[in-house]
Design a protein around this nucleic acid. Structure first.
Lengths: 190, 190
DNA sequence: TTTTATACTTATTAGTAAGTAAGTATTATA
DNA sequence: TATAATACTTACTTACTAATAAGTATAAAA
């Protein structure tokens, strides 16, 4: 059983994930990470030879995170509206730490990203949209949620409300996000 | 009457506006601009001493643009739904040129922007939200549009749908934006 | 106990960023 | 016609970027 020290790599990843959501791919550097960890620049390159390697790992961890969230929600003893509440809460929490969602972050920088990473971003985005659509469809079938569009379209509407909602909150304040969140929930109940 | 040559300055501004929407503030440089115009780097600095000066002018031109659009829409002999159509079309056109809206662009980079510019961004954003809210309110009063939320909240929902819609279109394709656009319009008519 | 892998540091490189100082050609003005 | 403003270019500086090569300390494996 190897006692390999993966702490530093995990911390690099964690800091990089935060920076991605706070300032975006083109606005952070390896030295931003190394300074926070009191290590040298080259130590970051030891764990992630190139910035593309780091970005790929960041996106992959979000794919893992959302797969876990998806599984968690499928099995959770919650009504559809509350599952959406869990999802919306994740966005609300982003605002507290001055962040936007990862999909909004990579979308803004999309054409400056390495093509290999773009493919993973597409996968991540479809995963999240699919997850929301599944919850919506489930809620509609059970008569818990009410909307006229098909579930995929409604998922697009909700995703864009939340993603741009946290972006807008940076500019006009958190209460605008709260209004958006409340409106989404109210529409689905009526 | 001075025949001052302002062509270069206008072209710099135009290219910079495009770059802002295509790659964002932190992903373009003065050399990206100077190369497109076949001038030297320092010539760009002649017209805009610092990148902050350039950014401020970019944001200010968008404020002007939206003020003009607002005035145009107020006086236009159009139904509220068609005024919103004009607004939504502007977003659809962004996708054709691989761009996102300026508000989404600056929101992503918000905490890396000079504070003075942030204030202008706040103004720009409130201007656009107010414009949409006015059209919505007018349509509601005239019985042309139907929605339960107050006009400001509905404006937030529509703005976020469109802003994140063009971002999402980069990742999953334009048809997702079209679905969003159609859904927004359908909701307001029913 | 020697060897090897791990996890770094030190030191450096090549490239690019924003920004500036000084010079030049052209045009407008006095 | 001399002067001054405009719109640049040339040449440069400072700072930062990602990335790499070579060295070092530590710990695990043979």
């Amino acid at each position: 059983m190897s006692a390999k020290n993966t702490d530093t790599k995990q911390e690099i990843l964690s800091i990089a994930r935060d920076l991605m959501k706070k300032v975006g791919y083109n606005a952070f550097s390896y030295s931003d990470i190394s300074k926070q960890l009191n290590i040298k620049n080259a130590a970051v390159h030891y764990h992630y030879p190139t910035k593309e390697d780091l970005l790929a790992d960041i996106v992959n961890t979000y794919i893992d995170d959302y797969k876990k969230l998806d599984e968690g929600l499928v099995n959770a003893p919650l009504k559809a509206i509350d599952k959406l509440g869990v999802f919306a809460d994740r966005y609300a929490q982003l605002i507290e730490v001055k962040s936007i969602c990862i999909i909004g972050s990579v979308a803004s920088d999309f054409y400056t990203l390495p093509p290999a990473v773009r493919e993973r971003v597409i996968l991540l985005t479809k995963l999240v949209l699919g997850m929301v659509a599944n919850v919506l469809e489930e809620g509609k079938v059970k008569g818990e949620l009410h909307f006229i569009e098909d579930a995929n379209t409604r998922a697009l509407l909700i995703m864009t409300n939340l993603a741009a909602g946290v972006q807008l909150a940076r500019i006009t304040g958190k209460q605008d996000f709260d209004h958006i969140r409340n409106a989404i929930m109210l529409q689905l109940k009526k």
